[in-house]
């Protein structure tokens, strides 16, 4: 009991020991610090763009009859290769998963010019620093029969659109 009393007394004394001037100065300084940190906090979101420039992520690749079995077509600007084999139609990204260079297509593999990553014909990593396989994108068909590739929708390796 006495010790509690002492603590309380001591506490009172500590409160009394702050002069009015010190208290007001301290409050003012804390007010400055608080308001400025709120300003800073609000500004944190500023550099992150709310909208990205409108780069089309879905594009048409023609009609099914443009792709006889065994054919392939490279869409240079979209950085995508579209192939048709026995299982159907599929689209593979040509962007290297290492650091974003564009891979070159060879007969049975893809090679990245920047750091020597190599991928097999289905995009699986076979050599070099690339951390994962080339991405496969979803292929689908519009009501009018045209085919589209959606680069926002990734599908597992081997997923094909059968025609």
């Amino acid at each position: 009991m006495t010790s509690l009393q002492q603590t309380v007394n001591k506490h009172d004394m500590e409160i009394e020991s702050i002069s009015r001037r010190d208290f007001l100065t301290s409050s003012a300084m804390w007010a400055v610090a608080t308001s400025m940190s709120f300003v800073l906090f609000g500004l944190l979101r500023f550099p992150k763009p709310a909208l990205f420039p409108d780069i089309p992520k879905i594009f048409k690749i023609g009609k099914p009859e443009d792709y006889p079995p065994g054919s392939e077509k490279i869409f240079e600007e979209k950085k995508v290769i579209v192939r048709r084999d026995a299982g159907g139609l599929y689209a593979i990204s040509l962007i290297c998963t290492h650091l974003g260079c564009i891979v070159t297509k060879h007969a049975d593999k893809f090679e990245c010019p920047c750091h020597g990553s190599k991928f097999d014909v289905r995009g699986k990593v076979i050599a070099g620093p690339a951390p994962k396989a080339l991405e496969w994108f979803k292929v689908s068909q519009l009501p009018d029969g045209k085919l589209v590739v959606d680069t926002m929708k990734r599908v597992p390796i081997g997923t094909m659109y059968s025609i």
Binding site: L99, C101, P113, C114, H115, G116, G128, P129, P131
Partner: peptide
Amino acid sequence: NPAKAPWYFLGLQELVSYSA
């Protein structure tokens, strides 16, 4: 091809060619 960074970053680029 090859896409090389400025010379003072090439040491890092060599390391990056092992793991990004």
